[in-house]
Design a protein around this nucleic acid. Sequence first.
DNA 1: CGGCTTTGACCGGCGC
DNA 2: GCGCCGGTCAAAGCCG
Length: 547
Amino acid sequence: MDKGWGLTLDTSSSQSLPLFPSKQPPNDTMFPLLGFPVNLSRAANKEDDHNRKVVGEVDFFSDRNKPNVKPNIIKKENIDEKPLHVNTGLQLLTANTGSDQSTVDDGVSSDAEDKRVKSTELAQLQVELQRMNAENKKLKEMLSHVTGNYTALQMHLMTLMQQNQRTETTENEVVQGKVEDKNHGVGGGKVPRQFLDIGPSGTAEVDDQVSDSSSDERTRSSTPQNNNVEGGTRDGVKNSNGKHELGREESPDSESQGWAPNKLQKTNPSTAMDQSTTEATMRKARVSVRARSEAPMISDGCQWRKYGQKMAKGNPCPRAYYRCTMAVGCPVRKQVQRCAEDRTILVTTYEGTHNHPLPPAAMAMASTTSAAASMLLSGSMSSAEGIMNPNLLARAILPCSSSMATLSASAPFPTVTLDLTHNQNPLQFQRPSAPFQLPFLQGQPQNFGSGATPIAQALYNQSKFSGLQLSQEVGSSQLAPQAPRPPLQPTQQPPSLADTVSAATAAITADPNFTAVLAAAISSIIGGAHANNNTNTNTNNNTSRTS
DNA sequence: CGGCTTTGACCGGCGC
DNA sequence: GCGCCGGTCAAAGCCG
């Protein structure tokens, strides 16, 4: 269904990079990371074909040079008589070889020399091919290694998060009021928990989260609701008006879980008010990405469904509202709107955290936004602080350029803006410093949403880094910088693998096309397991009718 | 026919 | 209380 989004992941990848056809057989020896494909199987086939030609078949090139047909056959016979194994290789090289032979076949001796020369070239090429093959193998091994490490880390993270959550739940039951300060003490209480706690583990955890956090939401609902989780999303509110009685109740579980944080439908009288405020803050935390794109929407790898469009005040361009449809009940929404000043700039604002696994391309963006929001809302930097010191947050997100990440203090909700419209080469992003060597602050939830990626980890750790530094500066766990801080200076350390991955992910995030391309390439290596996901991404990509 | 987009209407928050 | 505005809903229509 290519209706609107002209530049979605798959489309852009296939169009912009024909070198990586989506249906490329994974067995073909590819060097996607090197930027060029090497199809060994085809080479082998060529060789086979050419062997067949040499043995018996008449060279089809002879059709082009009919006068040479006969000499060509003679030449082949001569070749067969020679013990040289070179001939086969010689002929497989290129099509031109055959024609060359057919044109040069007058002199047998010169032909033999020529063949020797070419055999040498062939040998060199074969060596080169083997070398590249070995390199490709190494790259594959590296990739699998990194993937394995990442998976292991993610699993470990999930386990830790689940343990923390159970602990928190227990504590909440005992001392509900103090837990918040304890867990997020640095932030001074206004620390969004739900947002951070929604972990990559996905649905199960989110379910728990929602069931817990939703209670907070319920208190905000002005209309008394059914306390049961199933019933009531917004429908409960609307039921009071006698409208939308069936509304979106079609999937009570998923829907309520997914949208509950955004809807304030569920009411739990026993919920504390401060928690409600916290939840609201978390829920409303947003990450805005500014990127230049002619397409109606940037390809972030996720599958979105448009559910509304409005004309926003002060902007002639309509604002489109999308929700993630990669999983039922995914709470993530985004707004897409062109910048009024520069309509080539597409502003995409994300809200929420995915509750489902993401394809690689989506992980880059989702993790970045999630990490940015987590940083904003994490205890290491309270939202108020971040608003008061946007530069601090900016540097924490993208230390290489504070201008690329800003925080909107005027926005109704804490909003991190990642400005990717600058023309600097994403690959030249300064690598974060030792992101994995910094200790976590106490009580900091360390989840980055469903699509946790190295960059998420890196970003989040950067936030920790900044928070840690600040906390050291202020000499206590309370972060209350009163004046703009000097830029955080990365420590001088050789970039680790994680750094490299983070930088690469940043680059991916910065360039939607690159995201698609790399995702396709990695998918081709891994085995195309994610290819379907990426393909799904495209099914929706059509906003041609949007505006 | 299912899924998606379009689009007018509705709702809640907020400021006056 | 009223109006504005952002956000969402859902019926209708479109498309593959």
